[in-house]
């Protein structure tokens, strides 16, 4: 059962990922990315990451990607023009990506012992309570300094994108 679910959602994720890379229109790419995120959220659930799966939906799919779509719509950007000089890209790119994936897969196959298998429900520490405990005990410093990051992001968005009032 776990394998079937994995295969289904992995196929969706890869399909959407490919679509993201191959589509010429940013909106299509954005939605493909949402698809990837959604299927990844399901995979997180399979791996026992309930909290992170929901965070993935809320933060990534629900906020970040909406922002992307918003900007794409705002700029009303059309599809990519196909420049002649970039014709080599797919030809060079596809084998390159395949090669990288191949090497990566080989390494990973060596890395993970065959006994390591994923069973739904076997990992019990992904609930919000456990995560919160770990987060606020061991990772309290990174958590706190992340607030600076968010403040910067707010300031930056305002500085760069606000309308001149004068």
């Amino acid at each position: 059962m776990d394998s079937i679910l994995f295969l289904i959602f992995a196929a969706i994720a890869v399909g959407c990922g490919l679509n993201l890379v191959l589509q010429t229109h940013p909106i299509s790419s954005a939605l493909s990315l949402v698809g990837v995120m959604g299927s990844l959220a399901v995979l997180y659930l399979l791996l026992g990451g309930e909290f992170i799966a929901m965070a993935q939906l809320i933060v990534y799919a629900g906020a970040i990607m909406v922002l992307f779509i918003f900007v794409i719509m705002l700029l009303n950007a059309g599809g990519e023009r196909r420049g002649r000089k970039r014709l080599w890209a797919p030809w060079a790119g596809a084998p390159m990506v395949a090669a990288i994936i191949g090497i990566g897969a080989y390494l990973i196959q060596r890395a993970a012992p065959r006994t390591a298998e994923v069973t739904f429900g076997a990992f019990q520490h992904g609930n919000p309570s456990d995560i919160g405990t770990n987060l606020f005990e061991n990772y309290v410093l990174p958590f706190e300094i992340t607030s600076i990051l968010i403040l910067i992001a707010i300031v930056g968005a305002i500085v760069l994108a606000r309308k001149e009032i004068e």
Binding site: A41, I58, A61, G62, V66, I69, F70, M73, P128
Partner: peptide, 25 residues
Amino acid sequence: DLNIGVLFILGLSGMGVYGVALAGW
């Protein structure tokens, strides 16, 4: 009964915007 039901709802409500936004676009 999800032990993260509230987050689930929040997540889904966040996804709902796609319908409207996409329709508009």
